[in-house]
Simulated scan of single mutants.
Amino acid sequence: MKNNSVPQCPVARGLDSVGDAWSILVLRDAHAGLTRFDQFRKSLGIVPSVLTKRLKALTEGGLLEKCLYSEKPPREEYVLTDAGRDFLPVLMMIGAWAHLYCDGDLARYVDAESGAEIEPVAIDAVTGTKLGTRALRLKM
């Protein structure tokens, strides 16, 4: 049994909430505007049973919510919650890291209005310092 008086590692807890790579890719696709089971399945090339589990976990975790879009026949779609929308910077930072350290011709995010390439940077809101430029420690 865990001692609830000791703070958990936020990275471990966050990963526990989000799940695995498939779940992160579902969130990526949800941010791109996909909402329906068949859209996710086609985009990801994922088997239905795995997708069903990931959508259920993301819904139970509060990142997606099911909304009825057709009554006859009853059909539901998955839409981002506030928590799901707040995951976008995490997706952007994973992509920025991949551009630096992974080989291959990788797609780039651009601003929809200006067309300018987006270069995500994580900044500490308290100090204004770019994360990764100063030592840090985890306070438990």
Rank of each mutant, 00 (worst) to 15 (best):
H31W: 08
F87R: 00
V79E: 02
A83D: 05
P10K: 03
D16G: 15
A83I: 08
G62Q: 09
P7M: 12
R85E: 15
V126M: 11
L58D: 00
K130M: 12
C67K: 11
V126N: 15
G128C: 07
K53I: 10
L15R: 03
A116V: 11
K66N: 02
A98T: 07
A98K: 07
A32V: 05
H99I: 08
K130G: 04
G115C: 05
P48A: 15
E76N: 14
A57D: 09
D29E: 09
P73D: 13
L15K: 05
L55I: 06
V18A: 02
V110H: 06
R75I: 01
L34G: 03
I24A: 08
R36C: 11
I123E: 13
F37K: 04
R75P: 00
N3E: 09
L55S: 02
S70C: 13
Y78I: 05
R13I: 08
K130H: 07
A83W: 00
R54M: 10
L34D: 02
T52M: 10
L68T: 13
W22C: 11
D38V: 04
R85T: 14
I94N: 09
A12H: 14
V47P: 04
L27R: 00
A21Q: 09
D105Q: 12
I118H: 06
E60K: 11
I118D: 00
K72D: 06
K130R: 13
R13M: 10
V121I: 14
S43M: 01
K130F: 10
L88N: 08
L51H: 06
L27P: 00
A116T: 09
A12C: 15
G45H: 00
K42F: 05
E119Y: 12
Q39Y: 01
Y69H: 14
K42D: 13
W22S: 11
A107V: 03
V79M: 06
D82G: 11
L131R: 08
H31F: 04
A96K: 02
S5T: 14
C9D: 15
V110K: 08
R41Q: 14
E77N: 07
D124V: 01
K2F: 13
R108A: 09
V6F: 07
W97R: 05
K72G: 00
K66Y: 06
G45P: 03
G62W: 12
R36Y: 06
R36K: 13
L44I: 04
L64S: 02
P74D: 01
E113P: 01
E117K: 05
L88E: 08
G33M: 01
V11I: 15
D103K: 07
I46W: 04
A116P: 04
I46Q: 07
S49H: 15
S70W: 03
P7W: 09
D111S: 08
S70P: 07
A116H: 09
A112S: 12
D16A: 15
I94F: 12
R75D: 01
